[in-house]
């Protein structure tokens, strides 16, 4: 059972990671570097609970803020430029962050511990071990899954509200045609930076949550592979509405686990699924049109229930 709770918590982490990509995706900016903000969040979050005695929630929030600050650093200079500069910058930044995390050492010696395992805090290439917050505070995996999904719920609701607001409409206009956006007075660069920084914040929280399930992280957890999977959640689930990242992250986390018994073909099947979706539904599984149709179907139902008003 505990295994499935771990999967549930990891699924929540992945949903957050997917939304971190989606935030800037809405304005047409493709980040292949979310692993960097995820990694920054993981290291900051774990450092705060392990070394500074923070409680989990505060650590997760501060990790989000730290990752948001890192994304300002990447976003401000590159989002003014057109074309692929931004995407390339995110890849480069993610690689730089990985190398830095891989070579970071701070913290203090551990009282107990075997030879060669006597450090509390990030220890260079050995990684950051003994992130024992859950154990120390008697939080079960089941309880942790609930904590993770509570945060997911807040983020999903936030996106649900934003999606129906003018902000989303403006971001979509930027995505489709920046010239139109500027012609109606939209400060395009500012919108893009803010969307990207929100994504950085979410990735940071996600990373901190991840670190506390795994209890052991290292720079090599945050490779470009992770960034591309995060992007795949959005592209396969569907990048046109906020339901896509949710569906994509859940399916692409749970399906591989279900397929675990046929381990050898798992990755191949996974790859096949991606190819099939891209071939037959380039908009991803859920498109904007689908959501609009559901929306009007629901509205029609609600109207049918209400007694008709006579004028």
């Amino acid at each position: 059972m505990s295994y499935w709770f771990t999967i549930a918590a990891l699924t929540g982490v992945n949903v957050l990671l997917a939304y971190s990509v989606y935030a800037s995706f809405m304005s047409g900016q493709v980040s292949i570097g979310q692993a960097a903000f995820f990694g920054v969040g993981a290291y900051v979050g774990a450092s705060l609970t392990v070394l500074a005695g923070f409680d989990l929630m505060s650590a997760v929030l501060v990790a989000g803020i730290a990752a948001a600050a890192a994304s300002v650093f990447v976003g401000v200079p590159t989002l003014r430029l057109k074309g692929y500069h931004f995407t390339i910058a995110t890849v480069a930044f993610a690689e730089a962050v990985r190398v830095i995390l891989h070579n970071t050492k701070y913290g203090r010696p551990r009282a107990s511990g075997n030879v060669g395992d006597q450090w509390l805090g990030p220890d260079g290439a050995t990684g950051f071990r003994h992130i024992g917050y859950l154990n120390d505070n008697g939080i079960s995996t089941g309880q942790y899954a609930v904590i993770v999904w509570s945060i997911v719920l807040v983020v999903v609701v936030a996106f649900f509200l934003v999606e129906r607001s003018r902000i989303a409409r403006i971001l979509r206009t930027i995505e489709e045609d920046e010239v139109v956006a500027r012609s109606i007075g939209v400060p395009v660069a500012r919108y893009k930076v803010i969307a990207f920084v929100c994504g950085g914040f979410i990735a940071g929280m996600s990373g901190a949550l991840y670190a506390h399930i795994l209890t052991f992280i290292s720079g090599n957890d945050f490779v470009i592979h992770l960034s591309t999977i995060a992007l795949a959640f959005v592209v396969i689930g569907g990048g046109q509405t906020m339901w896509g990242p949710l569906l994509g992250a859940v399916l692409l986390t749970v399906i591989p686990e279900i397929l675990r018994p046929i381990r050898e073909f798992r990755i191949e099947l996974f790859g096949l699924l991606i190819i099939l979706v891209m071939l037959f539904r380039p908009t991803g599984m859920i498109s904007a049109i689908t959501v609009r149709r559901w929306g009007s179907a629901l509205a029609a139902k609600a109207r049918a229930k209400r007694p008709t008003q006579a004028f």
Partner: peptide
């Protein structure tokens, strides 16, 4: 913006 309705297009332009 192709995927916006007519009303949404004008609505966004008030921003």
């Amino acid at each position: 913006h192709k995927d916006s309705t007519v009303r949404e297009t004008v609505w966004a332009a008030q921003s």
